[in-house]
């Protein structure tokens, strides 16, 4: 059982290198936690200054619509706008309210306009607005931005860290000469690749479960479907990352060159994996997402976590990810020919 020997060795190495172990498990959790803080924060409350001439009723209504109100004159308001201490200033001009926005922060702009619009609507009820009754097919009114791209992030971080660590450890095997030593034994090339896949596979299953559990139960990420499906997808994603990482390590001469693959191979995948809406992108550019493993992983994770879907909706993603892993494994076996012909 030569494969088993490799598996045992890889797992032993993992537990010796506590820092890398920590990086693979804690770093994704930490970044997800930060993202959660940033995107799940309270809604922004704009600060609006009003002139004395503005009717009190208007100001009170604004306050009810989530704005902080400050009374001040035009000169002070101007100064404070410049220092970004207030977001907007409302004064009366010829009996009509006029607003000046600070304007440099889109979030603040949106918040100001929202509360002003709401207020004006409430103050002029004569135009009877139609009230739209909204039903959510998936998600809910409470769904935060983080819930939407959380699944993509889980997939991405698992992919990223496994890619890097697997790539670097395979590279080290080469630079430290142990690969040559292995190739001087009767060990077959495929046995090395399979040993790596199983050794890392065991470890990344553990890693992916912990990260998914953390995101869903501690960060309270939206989770409609089955946890087992999430595990299946994260496992397949890490297999793809592992096989791709070890494959590409054949084309790097040192750790730094391995890191250079990140902006080339890993980062573009974020943009194409559905974190951003691709509808507005040119068709030819959009078709790039077809060759990116993360696209399928992220799609499946969203189906499971947001839409609560099961096997039928993720089957294709599962097959494609399996296909990617197998393809990279075969290419890996071929790439090892560079070091031993047999």
């Amino acid at each position: 059982m030569r494969v088993r020997a490799i598996v045992i060795r890889i797992i032993r190495q993992f537990f010796r290198d506590k820092r890398t172990l920590g990086l693979m498990i804690l770093a994704p959790m930490f970044v997800l936690f930060l993202m959660n803080l940033v995107f799940n924060g309270e809604e922004y409350k704009p600060t609006i200054a009003v002139d004395q001439a503005v009717p009190v009723a208007l100001a009170e209504k604004l306050q009810k619509n989530d704005a902080h109100i400050k009374w001040m004159g035009k000169q002070t308001a101007k100064a404070q706008l410049n220092k970004q201490q207030i977001d907007a200033f409302i004064e009366m001009k010829e009996g009509m309210p006029q607003m000046t926005l600070e304007g440099s922060d889109p979030t603040a702009n949106k918040a100001v306009l929202m509360s002003v619009q709401k207020t004006l609507q409430q103050l002029t009820p004569q135009t009877k607005t139609m009230k739209l009754d909204t039903i959510y097919l998936h998600g809910s009114e409470e769904m935060a931005l983080f819930d939407n791209f959380g699944p993509v992030l889980i997939g991405f971080f698992i992919f990223f860290f496994v890619f890097l660590i697997a790539g670097v450890s395979f590279l080290r095997e080469r630079t430290r000469g142990t690969l040559e030593r292995l190739l001087a034994t009767p060990l077959k090339r495929w046995e090395i690749v399979v040993g790596y896949v199983i050794g890392f596979g065991i470890f990344t299953t553990f890693q992916a479960s912990l990260i998914s559990w953390f995101a869903i139960h501690v960060l309270d990420m939206m989770m409609e479907g089955s946890f087992l499906y999430v595990l299946l997808i994260t496992f397949l994603l890490s297999m793809t990352a592992l096989t791709l990482g070890t494959l590409l390590s054949a084309f790097a001469n040192n750790e730094l060159q391995m890191i250079q693959f990140i902006p080339l191979i890993v980062v573009p995948q974020i943009f194409f994996s559905g974190l951003f809406n691709l509808e507005t992108m040119a068709q030819w550019l959009r078709s790039f997402s077809v060759i990116m493993p993360l696209t399928y992983g992220a799609d499946a994770l969203r189906e499971i976590m947001i839409r609560g879907n099961g096997w039928n909706e993720i089957a294709i993603d599962v097959y494609v990810l399996l296909g990617f892993s197998l393809l990279f494994m075969i290419l890996n076996v071929i790439a090892l020919k560079k070091y031993r012909k047999l």
Partner: peptide, 20 residues
């Protein structure tokens, strides 16, 4: 080059290579 796994003990290295 020595071609050893530095993070492992000598015994673990020998166990690995003998298993191969």
């Amino acid at each position: 080059s020595d071609a050893l796994y530095e993070e492992l003990t000598a015994l673990e290295n020998l166990q690995f290579f003998s298993a191969i």
